[in-house]
Simulated scan of single mutants.
Amino acid sequence: MKILIIQQKMIGDVLTSSILFEALRLKYPKAQLDYLINEHTFPVVENNPNIDNFVLFTKQDELSKSNLLKFARSVGNKKYDIVVDTYSKLSSNLISLFSGAKTKISYHKYYTTLFYHYNIKREKHNDGKAGLAIVNRMQLLAPLGIETSFIKPKIYLTEKEIFNSKEFLESYQIDFSKPLYMISVLGSGKNKTYPFNYMAEVIDTLVKETSGQILFNYIPKQETEARAILDLCKPETQKNIHFNIFGKSLRAFLAITSHCDALIGNEGGAINMAKALNIKTFAIYSPWIDKATWNLFENDNNVSVHLKDFKPELYTKAEKKYKKETAELYKKFEPQLFRDKLKAFLKL
Rank of each mutant, 00 (worst) to 15 (best):
G189W: 06
G189C: 14
G189F: 09
K190V: 11
K190D: 14
K190Y: 06
N191V: 14
N191D: 15
N191F: 12
K192Y: 10
T193S: 13
T193K: 03
T193G: 09
Y194M: 07
Y194G: 08
P195D: 06
P195F: 09
P195C: 08
F196I: 00
F196T: 00
F196N: 02
N197A: 13
Y198H: 15
Y198N: 13
M199F: 05
A200D: 07
A200Q: 09
A200E: 05
A200C: 10
E201M: 12
I203P: 10
I203R: 12
D204M: 11
D204R: 11
T205H: 06
L206T: 04
V207C: 08
K208Y: 07
K208G: 03
E209W: 05
E209K: 15
T210R: 02
T210F: 03
T210K: 05
T210I: 02
S211H: 14
S211N: 15
G212D: 05
G212C: 05
G212V: 06
Q213S: 07
Q213K: 10
Q213F: 11
I214E: 04
L215Y: 00
F216H: 04
F216I: 08
F216C: 05
N217C: 04
Y218N: 04
Y218W: 02
I219R: 10
I219T: 14
I219E: 09
I219Y: 10
P220F: 07
P220W: 09
P220G: 04
P220S: 08
K221A: 06
Q222I: 01
E223F: 08
E223K: 15
T224M: 13
T224H: 13
E225P: 00
E225M: 12
A226Q: 01
R227P: 00
R227I: 07
R227T: 02
R227V: 03
R227K: 15
A228E: 14
A228V: 04
I229D: 02
I229V: 15
I229R: 07
I229P: 01
L230T: 00
L232H: 03
C233N: 12
K234P: 02
K234L: 15
K234A: 14
P235I: 02
P235R: 06
E236F: 11
E236Q: 15
T237G: 04
Q238T: 06
Q238E: 05
Q238K: 14
Q238S: 05
K239Y: 05
K239Q: 14
N240K: 15
N240C: 12
I241E: 08
I241H: 10
H242E: 07
F243P: 03
N244F: 10
I245Q: 03
K248V: 04
K248L: 10
K248Q: 12
K248S: 09
S249Q: 11
S249F: 11
S249R: 11
